[in-house]
Design a protein around this nucleic acid. Sequence first.
DNA 1: TCCCTCTGGTTCATTATTGTCAACAGTAGT
DNA 2: ACTACTGTTGACAATAATGAACCAGAGGGA
Lengths: 269, 269
Amino acid sequence: MSSTVAKALTLLDHFTENDPEIGLSDLARRSRLDKATVHRMLSAMADAGLVEQRHDTKLYRLGAGILRLARIREEAFPFTSVLQPELNQVARETGETAHASLISGRALATVGICDSSKANRVSLVAGEILPFHTTASGLATLAFGPEALSGRVLTGSLDGKTSFTLTDPKKLNARIETARQTGFGETDQTNEIDVYGIAAPFFDKTGLACGAIAVATPSHRMSEELRSQIIGAVFRAAEAVTTGTGGKLPGRYQEIVRTTLSSLTGAQD
Amino acid sequence: MSSTVAKALTLLDHFTENDPEIGLSDLARRSRLDKATVHRMLSAMADAGLVEQRHDTKLYRLGAGILRLARIREEAFPFTSVLQPELNQVARETGETAHASLISGRALATVGICDSSKANRVSLVAGEILPFHTTASGLATLAFGPEALSGRVLTGSLDGKTSFTLTDPKKLNARIETARQTGFGETDQTNEIDVYGIAAPFFDKTGLACGAIAVATPSHRMSEELRSQIIGAVFRAAEAVTTGTGGKLPGRYQEIVRTTLSSLTGAQD
DNA sequence: TCCCTCTGGTTCATTATTGTCAACAGTAGT
DNA sequence: ACTACTGTTGACAATAATGAACCAGAGGGA
């Protein structure tokens, strides 16, 4: 992590939906790097089009090159186009906020959101970076993702975001194991207070999980009935995304889903 | 340009619609960098999520982090969402391929395309990087963009992409000047043989051009009538994009557009 | 089977880039 | 005029990047 490009790229992580434009000094403070260093890095990234500087305010923001690259990826490996309709349907079916994340380096990147229509809902900021160990999406992804990934996470630092966060590798591993047996990830307030998450993984063409579809609800609203409904919805959506993007559902996984569904309260089809 | 991050970021430019997955050695050859260097850079970028490596083939491709960043930018400064409908309409009106580009570092980034419905049409690859000095979009953008930008381009290297390319700074500047007087950029086969381009700039909130909407047609099909039609279409679309994205049309520019339109053959509204 | 030639990945001494700190210019507020 | 910011540039010590050589594995031919 001492490489210069790595440091430069962490600068991008400070741009969020709520903070889309950042000044040089400000960014230097947040990244704990020297002003001059940040300046040089930003200049290089501006040349490449990753960021751009406004002529008037001198503030930096994400550049047009990002849009170009996104288009290339989307053209070659369509994802958000098949993802968004599924998210919308999940949100409609469950009445709660749905979102999807993809493995992105050392964390999960939120690449799609559909807000709940309810007044009291979990509101997510677009483009947030989610840790694996605090989110339902993370558990689901680790349970069925590359072996190396879960290994890295379990041996890495597990900082607590709330008092409920699983910071003990053994306990975390146990939760991953349950996810592996039920076919979905489930967390209560481990990432944010009063947020309950349920997530199902989707798979790439090699049969490894590469992300998850999740529903986030206010914890107090969670009930046995809602839980069953959400689990069914994310299972269906994740499968649709998997097949829609050319992924391969492991046979083993389909088995797991069936047994989980039949053990839920309420009726199944 | 000797900075390490700059070199690392040029690696991204080798991923295109036709070449979405690249191996390590291959990328090292294309970028004229050492294998070890490229590997370290790719690892850093993979950590940040800009690229990702397939487990099976070991090939690298653009990563999910790109999608995340694109979403953040699009959420904060909606662009493609307002752009695409306009492009579609231009393509429909003119029957030719329409595209839009944004200033992205030292070049133009193609961020939107709508293909012509004709069998014989100009086909563009999504996410292409366009030079300023060979394209109609470039002329239009330079004519009304930041002073510093046109200065940099005119003093930079103007490599010829076809035998028609303007490689002489004086001649190029003259063409920019005509664009400044007519309100639109126009090129014939300066970027690619048998491609005729007409482009109108759109503006940011400071009243500076930040990109252009362009129509590309097979050169032999261009006629006085089609030309008038295209110019009208790109003017209208560019204005719509400007206002739709919170930009400000310079009063001076509106004046220019009016006089240009009234000098065209055929009827105007 | 052996040989050859690719591939992705790693090592390590040399060297060039980077981080650091200070100074500078411009702007806004007091 | 003063202060406290901002973005930007320069110089030098420290560090990280470089690139040749090397490794292991996958195909391909004969």
